[in-house]
């Protein structure tokens, strides 16, 4: 029968229209935060309308997301070398870049003319870059990473779309912020939060190295389970945690161990923080 199909089709449309309100009603009573509601709506069991109201709400990109690369530099408050490049201008990123959009000028020692592990200049033409992530993947020093900022629209490209070192450089803490898990994994591979060169230098002098998850770890471990209790929950049992040695971080622990491990790490981190605070106050 003709016409029935149209009615059916309109019915489908109107069902979709109302389904989003049913969603709203269903979650109206629950104590979900707006973030959790957003998650529901953007998850696998979403029904109804699921539009992202872009400028007012943005889908945060996942950790591995890659857009234009950036260069990692030390934080401004780094004790040894603030603002120093992680890049050693080894040139691997420039070689592995498929469209060849990376230009590096290697520094030379002014006297001996020998190369210095620090780029004099570093350019990326973002009009060529294909966001493939090879530079970040193959960089042996974790010095170039893929940024998460995609809001780069511009009225002009001639002067602005070849990014120079100044524009590319972002502190290490930024990378840790946007990709905590990845930064953690990389630090575990490097066996330190520090740059490989710093670790080598420290090993020579015997200075303490901040091992991820270890005693001197200044940072929170990233693998925080969802809906966690506040950090303060960690008990301040002092002695035995300090006595513990640095764990073999690369080993993959089982699931129950993981939770235990995390609690312990958190405690350690809190302790370390406390110690640092104490040291700082004493220093002043």
């Amino acid at each position: 029968m003709y016409g029935l199909g149209i009615l059916k089709g309109l019915g489908v449309t109107i069902r979709h229209f109302f389904e989003s309100y049913i969603e709203d009603i269903r979650y109206a009573g629950s104590k979900l935060t707006p973030t959790q509601k957003f998650e529901k709506r953007q998850g696998t069991d979403a029904v109804g309308i699921y539009t992202v109201q872009y400028p007012e709400e943005k889908i945060a990109v996942p950790e591995r997301f890659r857009f234009v690369p950036f260069l990692v530099v030390e934080d401004d408050d780094h004790p040894d070398r603030p603002g120093h490049d992680w890049c050693t201008s080894c040139g691997i990123c420039a070689k592995v870049c498929p469209p060849q959009c990376i230009w590096i000028v290697r520094s030379e020692d002014p006297v001996s003319k020998r190369p210095v592990p620090e780029p004099e200049a570093f350019f990326i033409d973002i009009d060529i870059c294909m966001n493939c992530g090879f530079c970040a993947e193959f960089c042996p020093f974790d010095a170039i990473k893929m940024d998460h900022d995609y809001e780069l629209a511009d009225y002009d490209r001639t002067g602005t779309h070849i990014y120079d070192k100044e524009k590319l450089s972002k502190p290490f803490s930024f990378w840790r912020k946007i990709a905590p898990t990845t930064a953690w994994e990389e630090a575990v591979d490097r066996k330190s939060w520090e740059h490989t060169d710093v670790v080598k230098a420290k090993q020579k002098t015997g200075a303490p190295i901040s091992v991820p998850g270890g005693l001197n770890d200044p940072y929170q471990p990233p693998i925080v389970p969802k809906k966690e209790e506040p950090v303060a929950a960690a008990p301040s049992a002092a002695g035995e945690a300090v006595a513990e040695a640095v764990p073999a971080a690369a080993a993959a622990p089982s699931e129950e161990d993981l939770a235990k491990e995390e609690r312990r790490k958190k405690r350690e981190a809190a302790l370390a923080r406390k110690a640092a605070e104490k040291a700082a106050s004493e220093g002043n």
Binding site: V52, Y54, P55, K58, I59, V61, F67, V68, I126, D127, C129, M130, N131, Y150, E151, L152, A153, D154, Y155, D156, R157, H161
Partner: peptide
């Protein structure tokens, strides 16, 4: 307006449109 990215994500395109 130029929108960098390869390809720009939908949100990047929206940002371009807003620009």
């Amino acid at each position: 307006v130029y929108i960098p990215g390869c390809p720009p994500t939908p949100q990047a395109l929206l940002h371009g449109l807003i620009s």
